[in-house]
Amino acid sequence: MLFDKAVGYVESKGISKDKVLYIPNGFDTERTTSSIEISDELKQLFRKHAGKTIAIYTGAHGKANNLDIIIDSAKEIQRKKVSTHFILIGNGPEKERLRERIEKEDISIVTMLDPVKKEMIPEILKKVDVGLLPLVDSPVFKWGISPNKLFDYMGASLPVLLLCDLEGTPVELSNGGRVIKTNFEKSIIDFFANINKEEMNKLGENGRKYVEEHHAWERLAIKLEKKMIQDVKNK
């Protein structure tokens, strides 16, 4: 199972928890050294906003991704003149509506970009300060979360701003960012208005250490191998 609390679901179906092995999504610790150079468009964007706190979202632009709350917050952050810029990279059914909203409401501190090659993501994450993971309230999340982008952010030593009403997430367990459970917009605004580089670096270091210990593919592979060997011996 990918989700740490999914054992409860399995047990509710009358299956023994002994038959469950929890292996979450992982992080390739060598991936940050085998990426490709970022595009000229991105280089220009980072030069333009040098010195600002840059927050990034990489992934699908759908209803489940709750990107409206990021745009709502950015609008107020722009009004307050907090030195921040948001980058949203990806595609999805909500993208055009979100793009139109940004243009109509003249939110200049948000840049939307088309999807990029997966191999470029590590280089992009080296240039930014915060990883964004906004989630809508959904029954499926009560079993836990394990999105790849979360471990991409943490593996890149980025503090993660996670929006969800969940206990025991990797962000919380690692002290690798902030888990915002209520008052999303106000909490996002407060975070960017008050955080400093030293705090962001410390949170990012915490997250990187946690994924190395708990989500490195090498460790997860060993965990699976041990279970398989044990099962073979038992039979």
Rank of each mutant, 00 (worst) to 15 (best):
M1Y: 05
M1D: 11
K5T: 01
A6T: 02
A6Y: 07
G8A: 10
Y9V: 10
E11Q: 13
E11W: 02
S12G: 05
Y22M: 05
Y22D: 02
I23D: 08
P24A: 09
N25V: 06
G26H: 08
D28Q: 02
D28V: 02
D28E: 04
T29K: 08
T29S: 10
E30L: 12
T32S: 07
S35E: 07
E37Q: 01
I38D: 00
S39R: 06
S39K: 07
L42A: 03
K43W: 02
Q44F: 01
F46T: 03
F46M: 05
H49K: 03
A50M: 07
K52S: 03
I54G: 03
T58Q: 01
A60Y: 01
A64L: 01
N65G: 02
N66D: 00
N66S: 00
L67Y: 01
D68C: 01
I70V: 08
I70T: 01
I71E: 01
D72K: 02
S73G: 02
A74M: 05
A74T: 00
I77F: 04
Q78A: 13
R79I: 12
K80I: 04
K81L: 04
V82D: 05
H85C: 03
N91E: 10
P93N: 15
E94N: 08
K95Q: 11
L98W: 07
E100L: 15
I102Y: 06
E105D: 15
M112E: 13
D114Y: 09
D114G: 09
K117Q: 15
K117H: 15
K118C: 02
I121F: 05
I121E: 08
P122T: 11
K126C: 10
V128A: 11
V128R: 09
D129I: 06
V130L: 10
G131N: 11
G131I: 04
L133C: 14
P134Y: 06
V136L: 12
V136I: 15
D137E: 14
P139T: 09
V140R: 13
W143N: 12
G144T: 12
I145G: 07
I145Y: 03
I145D: 07
S146E: 14
P147S: 05
P147T: 04
K149C: 01
K149Q: 05
D152E: 12
Y153S: 00
L158M: 08
L158C: 08
P159N: 00
L163T: 02
C164E: 01
E167S: 13
T169S: 05
T169G: 04
P170S: 03
E172F: 09
N175K: 13
G176R: 02
V179A: 11
V179W: 06
K181V: 14
K181T: 09
T182M: 09
N183D: 13
N183A: 05
F184E: 10
S187I: 10
S187D: 15
I188P: 03
D190A: 11
D190Y: 11
F192S: 09
F192Q: 08
F192E: 09
F192T: 04
A193W: 07
A193V: 06
I195N: 12
I195S: 14
E198L: 13
E199A: 14
M200R: 14
G204I: 12
K209V: 11
K209E: 13
V211N: 13
V211K: 09
E213F: 10
E213A: 14
H214Y: 14
H215R: 15
H215S: 11
H215D: 11
A216T: 09
A216R: 12
E218L: 04
R219H: 14
A221H: 09
K223R: 10
K223E: 10
K233E: 13
K235C: 04
